[in-house]
């Protein structure tokens, strides 16, 4: 049934203006609500301990206490400065990311460009590991790590990432599939070996996938809580998430300002990397549906 358009009361131009205005109002209100918890964290890290829970919702500190919060938080907990935790986190995240991306790249290249026996079976195994909850493996992993003596060492946190990650393998395979096979053939005619083809020809072309994988891998390791919680029990080897968790224990710590300040410190690199490399993240999620 054809629809009969009622005569607009306003001109087209002003209708457009109103709809645009409405869009921006809704978007800004929503945007504010979305980042309010972050702003609140930042504001609380500037407030004095006595002020945090009075008119808690306010984002403007009455008394600025930032310096004392950040310096007292930095002093750390259990006799270790927060710098130790930050250092542990940095080592684990940087080394782990490097290992994870290189291994994933090798696996993805193999799956998409090399014919070998049982390749489709192994690829199916990659996809299965996406579905299996890590909790199934955790008790035996703990036993294995304990028997080879790496519990309470950063190796226990880094090593698992050196075997690559199914999400990144999948993402990179998708990218490799987009590269024409003629490229490989031309390189082969010119006398390029398979490994050289990967390094010289493919690498620059799948750089966006590598960037996406690196960023996500960094995020996941940086924020990982479950693995460190199980494999670490010496505070000197704690990563930041574990240290922050200690801060939340009211029996051992009551400095809310310090806790908020160090929480903000732990998020700063994440937000910074996000702002710098947003483009790669958005592409990566659209391709694989990775959880941030």
């Amino acid at each position: 049934m054809p629809h009969i358009e009622t005569k607009p009361m306003l001109g087209l131009k002003s209708r457009k203006l109103i709809s645009s205005l409405l869009f921006h109002i809704v978007s800004i209100v929503l945007g504010f609500l979305m980042i309010y918890p972050l702003l609140w964290l930042l504001a609380s890290s500037f407030k004095s301990n006595s002020e945090i829970f009075i008119n808690s919702f306010s984002l403007i500190p009455k008394v600025w206490d930032a310096a004392s919060n950040y310096s007292s938080g930095w002093k750390g907990i259990s006799g270790y400065s927060f710098g130790v935790f930050l250092g542990n986190s940095l080592i684990v995240a940087v080394v782990g990311t490097l290992g994870c991306v290189v291994s994933s790249l090798m696996a993805a290249y193999t799956f998409s460009r090399i014919r070998f026996r049982f390749s489709s079976f192994w690829f199916a195994c990659v996809m299965v590991t996406l579905m299996i909850p890590g909790q199934v493996m955790v008790v035996p992993q703990y036993i294995i790590f304990r028997s080879i003596g790496v519990i309470n060492t950063l190796i226990a946190l880094v090593a698992p990432w050196f075997f690559g990650n199914a999400f990144f393998i999948f993402l990179m395979v998708q990218f490799f599939r987009g590269l024409p096979i003629e490229l490989d053939e031309a390189a082969e005619i010119d006398g390029c070996s398979k490994v050289m083809t990967l390094i010289k020809i493919h690498l620059p072309l799948i750089a966006p996938a590598i960037a996406t994988s690196s960023i996500f891998s960094f995020y996941w390791i940086w924020q990982d809580f479950f693995q460190p919680l199980i494999f670490m029990n010496n505070p000197g080897k704690f990563t930041m998430p574990l240290a922050l968790n200690l801060f939340t224990d009211p029996n051992s710590y009551s400095n809310y300002g310090g806790m908020f300040a160090m929480s903000a410190v732990s998020l700063a690199p994440v937000v910074l990397v996000f702002i710098l490399f947003q483009k790669y993240l958005v592409e990566g999620i659209a391709t694989t549906g990775m959880k941030g």
């Binding site: 978007s27 929503l30 945007g31 979305m34 980042i35 918890p37 972050l38 609140w40 964290l41 609380s44 945090i52 808690s56 995020y219 940086w222 924020q223 809580f225 930041m240 998430p241 922050l244 968790n245 801060f247 939340t248 809310y256 806790m259 908020f260 929480s263 903000a264 732990s266 998020l267 994440v270 937000v271 996000f274 702002i275 947003q278 993240l281 958005v282 959880k291 941030g292």
Partner: peptide, 24 residues
Amino acid sequence: YRTFYYIPSIIGGSIAVSIVWKQM
């Protein structure tokens, strides 16, 4: 706007955010 809506997904799994939630 997209950036603002997406940031929580990036940081949501972190302990810092859980701490914020606990206090908020």
